[in-house]
Amino acid sequence: MSDSTATANGTLAEAHHEHPPYQRHHFETVSQQFDATNFAMWLFLLTEVMFFGGLFTAYLIMRNWYYPAFVEGSHQLSIFWGTANTTVLILSSFTMAMGVWSAQMKRKGMLLFFLGLTFVLGLVFLGIKSIEWHEKWEKSHVPGLRYSGQSFLNPASDPEVYAEYHDKPLAPDMASKTEQYFFLYFAMTGMHALHMVIGIGILGFMIIRAKAGAYTSGHYTFVENFGLYWHFVDIIWIFLFPLLYLISRY
């Protein structure tokens, strides 16, 4: 062996031989492992920002062109359910943060409780979302599959929404652009919901591992990184909510 690969100092070499079971073989120290995976997660979230960025660009252009259609389209969304869902998500971000904290404090019971709560809140979010989507289906506001512009050509035909907003009828060409609004609504909330579903899946996996005590022995990297993901998905919603629900209100 050539001298070029001089031995690293003694402590490093020692750490290599006596590392904890969760340290992967190719890392020198646990903190290196933590740093690396944490950094990777941030980078991944950056790619996610770019991914949603494309959708937001399309949204901004369409909204700029077809503003009246976007306004009346947004009137079809229930601000009540939207607010409820926002609250649920913010709450779940809080419980997730508490989960990370419990893992850091090595409290297994608390970790399980908070992860479970986050899991349930995630499901509640999806439940509310599906109620909203179902309503769109009932009112024929699903572009491509079942769509009718009646609510916009003749707002009075939609008494509930009309009573609240007293929208003026849209010209036919503008009314047809509400389909663009709902297309983007479904694309954006759908993409967000897909991230929620993946998140809930991983949460389920984490709960099972947590029961076996995987995260409460000092190695909570996975919980922390998942927490970052969960907060990110939450933040996406914080943008989606005003952009889709509150168009004419700010």
């Binding site: 980078l43 950056l46 790619t47 770019m50 991914f51 494309g54 959708l55 399309a58 694309a187 993409m191």
Partner: peptide, 14 residues
């Protein structure tokens, strides 16, 4: 790769 490719991905989805 990290910053550009996701944009292609969402474009293809659209």
């Amino acid at each position: 790769m990290v910053l550009g490719t996701p944009v292609l991905a969402i474009t293809l989805v659209l």
